[in-house]
Simulated scan of single mutants.
Amino acid sequence: MEQRRLGSSANGINVSALGLGCMGMSGMYGPSDRAEGIATIHAALEAGITLLDTGDFYGMGHNEMLIGEALRGTSRRDQAIVSVKFGALRDPAGGWSGYDARPKAVKNFLIYSLTRLGLDHIDIYRPSRLDPDVPIEETIGAIADMVKAGYVRHIGLSEMGPETIRRAAAIHPIVDLQIEYSLISRSVEDRILATCRELGIGITAYGVLSRGLISGHWQKDALNGPGDFRAHAPRFLGENVARNLALVDALRKIAVEKNVTVAQIAIAWVAAQGTDIVPLIGARRRDRLDEALGALLVSLSKEDLAAIERAVPKGAAAGERYAAAQMAQLDSERA
């Protein structure tokens, strides 16, 4: 498995060229199979994937416990690099009620995560979003205290804009920014990517298949019940989904010519945007994991990249990546 560096040579960390995003194993896309999720984590580790990404609010702690159980059941525990997002607040009905990144909340969230995961430290710890009521310096300072205490190894960010990234990096080295990046979600290219590269900060790209929309497997009206949050995502609704699937059909023609799948070419495109970028694949099943791993064998020439750009030009997607209320909470999307 190829390794990529997140962060600077002095303060960074080497991880596998693909990471496994575990969110979908905890019901965020509708019902999930616990045993298959654990088997998928085991298969990823066996294949050489080291980076496992989660959030303490995925399934209200379910995802962390799932990963903890999976790691206890494998001989490859020492190779796992666990990345945790914190701070998103949920209610008993599963709704979202803001963010809490106060220093005392950081330490509270951290001990719960360590307990659920069954770990003595977390490799990369990051606020899930910018808390508008807490200066980023205070949040990063609190995590830095946990680095000094040995409970956290590295600090990351998630969905932060250029100014916030700079302020955070002034307090403590930042190894990576986690942000959505795919053929149909490219706002990171406007200013954020350049800022991260200037500061020596890597990118862990989630949503590389846009939550399945550009996987080549998605069909209109394929939402997986009321627990599937894509039911509220504009790109999956109304006329938008049909327009977006037309982009997938254009991409499919290129994939067929290269004898690869749509998912593989979409993942390979993200990986080809720089060696400082690590795509997170959201496979919930071993067959989808196997397909995604095949992206590592896909080589894209300049001609291929130009053809992909013509098929799915920047800004071609119909609909925003989140509902309006969630978009408003993204520091990364602020002008």
Rank of each mutant, 00 (worst) to 15 (best):
G27P: 08
I41F: 01
G282T: 08
G87D: 11
A88K: 07
S113R: 14
M65F: 05
G202S: 05
T50F: 01
L209G: 08
H62L: 14
G37K: 04
D276F: 12
A255E: 03
D331H: 07
S9M: 14
P132E: 15
G19C: 09
E333C: 10
A35M: 01
A80S: 06
M160Q: 14
D145S: 14
I111G: 15
A323L: 08
I111C: 15
E320K: 12
A43H: 05
G48H: 00
Q3P: 12
M23Q: 04
S182F: 02
F236I: 12
E320Q: 10
V188K: 03
L223T: 07
V312R: 00
L157H: 04
A306I: 10
I201K: 01
A222V: 12
A325C: 06
I165D: 04
E309D: 10
S332Q: 05
L177N: 06
R211G: 08
T115I: 09
K148W: 05
A169W: 09
G216A: 11
E2Y: 04
K148S: 15
E239F: 02
L245K: 08
G202C: 12
L296I: 11
V298H: 09
G216K: 08
V175K: 02
I171W: 10
I308W: 02
D145P: 06
V175F: 00
S97G: 07
E69L: 04
G200N: 11
N14S: 15
D249E: 15
M1F: 01
L297W: 07
S9V: 15
A80V: 06
E163S: 14
I67G: 03
T261G: 00
L110P: 15
A194Q: 12
L52A: 07
L193R: 13
R186Y: 05
M25W: 01
Q273P: 08
A283I: 03
S332R: 05
G73V: 10
R129Y: 06
L223H: 12
A43F: 00
L114K: 04
D33E: 11
D123A: 01
G141I: 01
G315M: 06
D276R: 13
R4M: 04
I140W: 00
S299K: 06
A10Y: 06
L296S: 09
S16W: 02
I13M: 08
A266T: 11
I214H: 09
S128P: 11
S299V: 13
K107E: 06
D304F: 04
G150H: 02
I174R: 09
Q326R: 10
S113Q: 10
M1W: 02
G98I: 13
K258N: 00
I214Y: 02
G150D: 11
I49G: 04
D131S: 11
K314G: 05
